[in-house]
Structure formats: C-alpha cells, structure tokens
Amino acid sequence: MLAFIAKRMLATIPVLGVVALFVFLMLRLSPGDPASIIAGDYASPSDIERIREQLGLNASIPVQFGKWIWTLAHGDLGISIFTNLPVTKLIAQRVEPTLMLSLTTLVFAVLIAVPLGVIAAWKAGTWIDRTIMILAVAGFSIPVFVLGYILIFQFSLELRWLPVQGYTSPFVDFWKFTRHITLPTVTLSVIYIALITRITRASVIEVLEEDYIRTARAKGQSERIVLLRHALKNAAVPIVTVIGLGVALLIGGVVITESVFNIPGLGRLVVDAILKRDYPIIQGLILVFSMVYVMVNLVVDIIYTIVDPRIRY
C-alpha cells in the first residue's frame, strides 16, 4: 500500500511535465501579447519591444521553456508580469475561498445526492423515482450563471435573507462565512447533485439485483438495513469514482461561480490572468490544478481499498 502511494507520487512527475509543456506551448502559440497590454493603447512599437525584452519574451521558445522549468524545479512558479509578485504568493492569498467553496459544495452535494439516489433506487419506477430523475435532468440542464442570478434575485434582492456577493473567511467570522457561502454552494452543487444522484440510483439498482441482497433478505434483515448496509456499500465504488471526477469538474464551475458572486478566489485570479495574458500566473495555476487532480485520483484509489477488501494494490 505504501509502495503503491510512493509509486503514484512518483508518477505525478511525468504527468506534470507533460502538462507544463502543453500549457507553455498553448500560451505562446495563442494570439495576444502581454507586452502590448502592459504598454497600453498609445505605446509605440519600440516601447513594446523594450518591454518584451525586459520580460524575456524575445528569447526562443525552447530557451523560455527551459528557464521556466528550471525555476519550477526549484519550487518557484515565477513572478507575475503585472503585479510583480511571486505567483506562489498570489495563489496562497487566493486559495482559501476556492478551497472553502469546493469543500462546502462537495459536502453539500454528497449529503443531498446520495440519499436522493438511494431513495430513487429503492422506489424505482414509482412517481418518487420519476420526480427525482426529472429534477436531476433539470439540474444538469441549467447553466451555473443563470441559476446563480436567479438565486441572488430571489434570496438576496427579494427576500433579503442572504448577502448578494462577497466572501468572509470562516476563521474570521463563521456566521458571516456561512451566509456568504450558502448561495454559491447551492448554485455550484446543483449539477453535482444531479450527477451523483443519477449514478447512485443506477448503481444501487444494479446491486439490488445481486444474490447477496436476496441472502440478506433470507436472513430476515429489514429493508432499511438491506438498502444501507448491503446495497449502498456495494454500490459505493462507482459513486466514489464520480465524486472524484466531480472534483475535477469543480475547477471549471468554481471559475464561473466566483465571478457571479464576486468571490476573491483562484477562479477570479485565473480569469484576470487570462485577460491580461499574465503567463506565469496561468501556467502556475494550471499546474496547481493538475496536481490537485492527480491527488484527488490517488485519494479515490485509496478510498476504493477501504470500501472494497478485494481491491489491493
């Protein structure tokens, strides 16, 4: 098991290498030039050329890449072109809101979706099942920004229950944090609730057909425990897989949600960096995101072994 974790940790290095190469090339090959943005609308071509020279953008692409990888190898993500601050510092400043939003979304989605999916599976074919599935389709279909604005309109502007936007750290004021994080969490959760509910339902329905479910009933076990202890645990592997995939998808959703609710997180940082072609920030963030993704996959694999004694690495 430890050998497995060590092996997987080592495997992240080539993954990150490939990601780094792709990010770097895509940014250099796509149109847009940070130098002309810094220089402003009235700059002369020679001004722009001077800035390019300062930023090291005139070196050949392999040289630029080599320099960047060299600094990366020292644990340094580089210096932001516009703010002149280290990228690691910028990320550290912004990481908390994103982390908090991801966490609350994940917890909220799982708490709602798994019971809904189990109920739908248990009542498969009835109106309860059908209602849950219709809601799931609706949840899939509604774009995050539309839902976000609807919720803001209803709960913040009309009912005045919750703040419209902004963020407070839970370590500063937990009550304010809860009020601020509620609407973004609900907004971002909806699609995951839909996804996890569907998978839970399908997985539990499949497991309910298994022989050991019949055995549990033959023992005189109650339906509730048959469902929760025998069926749900056996259905867990696909559910855990989807939750893991959900974390990866979350990154995209976070960007939009943070914009809608004006939360100063990594999503906002990356959007701003893209608009300004701030290469070091974009590169650094994408590397961090892919690192997170690899780690989530590792965690999912470890959870498999906890759920299922047949899986051993």
Binding site: Y212, T215, A218, K219, G220, K233, N234, V307
Partner: peptide, 21 residues
Amino acid sequence: ALRGARMSMIFQEPMTALNPL
C-alpha cells in the same frame, strides 16, 4: 421474523450469495 430463524435458505452460487464487502 421467521426468515433466518425458523426457516432458512442457502443458494446455488455461494460466491455471489455472500456480500463481498
């Protein structure tokens, strides 16, 4: 209350009839 106590049943395929987890 009767199942498993006063009458019980065993099945064809013991691999699938037992909960793997």
